[in-house]
Design a protein around this nucleic acid. Structure first.
Ligand code: MN
Ligand code: MN
Ligand code: MN
Ligand code: MN
Lengths: 222, 222
DNA sequence: ACTTATTTTTAGACAAATCTAAATTTAAAT
DNA sequence: ATTTAAATTTAGATTTGTCTAAAAATAAGT
């Protein structure tokens, strides 16, 4: 079965929104897709016929298992292409989203599998989001906000809360990125800034705003 | 200025047809694009407004210089992606055309340039067709049909007349491909088969049909 | 030159995806 | 429980790209 780019964008948007909210409302979707509620209703009816979702009027929508499978395939392509753009073609992570929005709709199954193989089956995209494998499975690491990390616990940066150029710039300057290992040394209650320590580097202080846009997972130090 | 996938497909089709025929007719285009003449007329009017071509009713169409520039950009993307698929992702040359038909419409300018850089600025695609550079220039080698190559002239296979799986299969078996260096040793007028010799290999005979689907350029033997 | 055949264009219709404006349904407030 | 507000759906129109059937222009045949 083949789906249009528009249909795929709807499915992906519903997938992302239902992670947070359970049932997804028409207005939420309209906002996410920068379109009008009336258009959403029309499309939901069409996608219901195609059995990609379960929709009851006035009651919101959820993906069917068919729909979820499709959503994961699209997310997989999006994140694999982002990884390719950053790691093979040397894009900055703030430049890849728009391009991946187009590339995720290329339909060739072989292309995705060969790309995955070429890239070495990466598990996370450049923003730290997990890449579903060909079966739709992905590593779900529970990650906590850096601002909430307790002192002296070894941890590793695993994702970022924003994909802005500004964030990328400051992270580059401070030599922080996905995979960076660190520990919190001090927390200052005055401005909620924190002092962190990375291996082979002097301790540095980072602002509350910066700490809040980094997510880490704890690691055993062996 | 942004163009739809459909518009780009029309422009590319006109580009390819006008190489052969000069002015392109409505029916030719309809055949090439598997659509109806009436649809062609409609689209030609639209593309005229967008100044991509010069069209007079009942008199056929040619690309404007704007249109030609666009066509070359699309051909460039098509052939670069084909090169990528074969050389980086290990596709067979008979598997890449459909995928490249989709990939050629990805709009990111940076993507094309970085891809070109990553691939090492290849000059020819896997079928031996020249890849336009970022300025739209391409190497135009005059190539002759292998069936017309005079005996004992060193030559190199530079393109193929078909992209079928069947051709690929026989070429693989006979260890022939783009870049293979050879000389014609004998021509048999009975069935127009020819005997060719490649370096470090015993001479082999190939059929008229096979020779006709290979194009070569002569090379100096130093 | 006149008739016939072919090519091309117009006219009118249709499906996909969207919009605006109006009508319904549900939720919130008094 | 009414009234008011917000969310959602319908109705009708629009744009893009396509189609069929009919009309017009060009080309070919005698
Ligand atoms: Mn993205
Ligand atoms: Mn991402
Ligand atoms: Mn091709
Ligand atoms: Mn090619």
């Amino acid at each position: 079965m083949h789906f249009t780019t528009t249909e795929e964008n709807y499915i992906k948007a519903i997938y992302h929104l239902q992670q947070e909210t359970g049932n997804v409302s028409t207005n939420e979707l309209a906002a996410e897709l920068s379109t009008k509620p009336a258009s959403i209703t029309d499309m939901l009816k069409k996608l219901t016929v195609k059995k990609l979702l379960r929709y009851e009027r006035y009651k919101g929508v959820r993906l069917s298992s068919e729909g979820e499978k499709l959503a994961l395939a699209i997310v997989r392509k999006h994140r694999l292409w982002e990884y390719f753009l950053v790691n093979t073609l040397e894009f900055g992570w703030d430049e890849v989203h728009e391009v991946a929005e187009e590339l995720e709709h290329i339909s060739s199954k072989k292309l995705v599998e060969q790309l995955d193989l070429f890239l070495g089956y990466p598990k996370f995209d450049p923003h730290g989001d997990p890449i579903p494998d060909s079966q739709g499975r992905m590593v779900m690491q529970q990650q906590i906000n850096l601002i909430d990390l307790a002192p002296d616990i070894p941890a590793e940066v695993c994702s970022v809360g924003s994909q802005s150029t500004e964030l990328l710039e400051i992270l580059k300057h401070k030599q922080l990125g996905i995979g960076t290992k660190l520990q919190v040394k001090r927390k200052f209650s005055f401005d909620h800034s924190i002092e962190i320590k990375m291996k082979n580097l002097p301790a540095i202080t980072i602002s509350q705003q910066l700490a809040q846009s980094l997510f880490v997972k704890t690691i055993s130090n062996d």
